[in-house]
Design a protein around this nucleic acid. Structure first.
Length: 439
RNA sequence: GUAGGCGUAGCUCAGUUGGUUAGAGCACUUGGUUGUGGUCCAAGGGGUCGGGGGUUCGAAUCCCCUCGCUUACCCCA
């Protein structure tokens, strides 16, 4: 074929569409039951909106163009700038806390690889206007609520949680200059990807004194409850540091109270590349072969200000359908999504046009009653029609026959059990799935 | 942008000292079957062997180039 779907973008044939809908229905369901409202924005924004948030380097990763008025536009690569813009515009009018979710279609002009395409859907959950760490706990709970909803157990997925603010406090107490923090974050974020000796080498390239090097090595290893204890020792008597560690402990207490403790793990190795995170950060990982993060987020303190809004803190996360689909596949969690026809209507004698008229009217009546009903377009033998009914995964078959014309009865067959019984047509229309008695 | 792997039917793949008209399974269509589906049997449609060039009497097969896909790195919102 001359044409195919663009690089990194997908065609959704019905089976793929069914899988996509399966995931997205669960995103909606979980969002709504956790008290989030849906919002959306335009598919593209002014290029500058993304520049403001992420810097000039972002431009090469975007699909962008000049419109006919010469305005630089970009297809959205993420939802957060749009969210910040929308909330900032009505910051004072919106009831707090703002709990919003969205399932935007996003595009990024990067090289496709496993779990990462050029066009995808991303579930976004955000809480704004609530500084208490309870909001952070809520966001993490929502992500795990979704994992549970699709059948993932703590043996299959882990939510790794860390804290930018604790990390910042420890670094400050140990004499790291403010302007070095960015580089340190980037380095620590790589820890889990490298062998220990390579990580040590990377630390050395930072060019910090020996004691600070040792601190960074130790920090990267902090994990689990002992890790948090270790952080407590590191901050010592520093009041601000103590407060941050207390906050982190409270986060884990809350998650325990919410019943999702088994999914959660403190891990200082989670830092997240983004510059704008200011508090707790978290990333979920599958425990199988797929090592990529399946969701990631955290608290951002200053984001609204960068788009000209008031100071308002937020916390949220995003999760792409591509990685979720990979994970579902890996753990075989997608159910059979083949289309099901509830009722298939058959005429017993294809040579009798009067019977077919009744097939049409009965099918139409079933559909009017919101029952998925179908029939064969070809007037062919009853065996062929049954075959077609079977191919369409019909639950029940209604056979229109001579008795239908004389007594207004039809034969109903259950395709699962094979049981067939004559019944009054009205009774069948009222309840097509009533129990059948074997003859 | 860097490096590896792979390109044969819709899908998964066979196909070597280079040799007739390129194959299988699954899927699809039709028939076996004029009142009963799934199983089974049979037939059929579907391929410029990714593309171009070269070597050769002869290339899916050997050589060169190119395009595409894919995995990892870089980056990551």
């Amino acid at each position: 074929m001359k044409f195919k779907a663009p690089r990194g973008m997908r065609d959704y044939y019905p089976d793929a569409m069914a899988a996509r809908n399966w995931i997205m229905e669960r995103w909606h369901r979980v969002s709504l039951r956790n008290g989030f409202e849906e919002y959306d924005g335009p598919i593209m924004e002014e290029l500058d909106l993304f520049r403001v948030k992420s810097g000039e380097g972002i431009v090469s990763e975007l699909f962008h163009f000049a419109d006919r008025g010469g305005r630089e536009m970009a297809i959205r690569p993420e939802m957060t700038p749009t969210l910040a813009r929308m909330v900032a515009a009505r910051a004072n009018a919106l009831r707090k806390p703002i709990k919003w979710y969205s399932v935007p279609r996003l595009c990024r002009a990067e090289r496709p690889q496993r779990g990462r395409l050029r066009e995808f859907f991303q579930w976004n959950i955000d809480i704004l206007g609530e500084d208490d760490i309870l909001a952070d706990a809520e966001c993490i709970f929502v992500a795990i609520d979704f994992f549970r909803d699709i059948g993932l157990t703590p043996e299959q997925v882990v939510m790794k949680i860390s804290s930018r603010s604790v990390l910042a406090a420890i670094l400050r107490i140990n004499g790291f200059a403010e302007e070095r923090l960015e580089a340190v974050y980037a380095t620590l974020d790589k820890r889990d990807k490298l062998a220990p000796e390579e990580f040590s080498k990377l630390i050395e390239t930072l060019g910090v004194p020996e004691p600070q090097e040792q601190l960074l090595l130790k920090l990267g290893e902090a994990k689990g409850p002992e890790g948090i204890t270790m952080l407590g020792e590191m901050v010592g008597q520093d009041p601000e540091g103590n407060q941050e560690v207390d906050n982190l402990e409270r986060l884990f207490d809350l998650l325990g109270d919410m019943g999702v403790g088994p999914y959660c793990l403190f891990d200082m190795g989670v830092v997240r590349g983004l510059a704008y995170y200011t508090g707790p950060v978290f990333e979920a990982f599958g425990k199988g072969g797929l090592q990529r993060a399946i969701c990631g987020g955290g608290r951002y303190g200053e984001l609204l200000k960068t788009v000209g809004g008031p100071p308002m803190s937020g916390v949220g996360f995003g999760s792409s359908d591509v990685v979720i689909a990979d994970l579902l596949k890996e753990f075989n969690l997608l159910p059979d999504l083949s289309p099901v026809t509830a009722v298939f209507v058959i005429d017993a004698d294809p040579r009798n046009p009067t019977l077919f008229k009744r097939v049409l009217s009965i099918t139409a009546e079933l559909r009017r009653r919101n029952i998925t009903a179908s029939y064969s377009y070809r007037r062919q033998g009853i065996g062929k029609q049954f075959k077609q009914a079977n191919d369409r995964n019909a639950r029940r078959v209604i056979i229109v026959e001579e008795a239908t014309l004389t007594d207004n009865t039809v034969s109903v067959k259950d395709m699962g059990t094979g049981v067939q019984q004559p019944l009054a047509l009205e009774a069948v229309l009222d309840d097509p799935f009533q129990p059948l008695e074997p003859a």
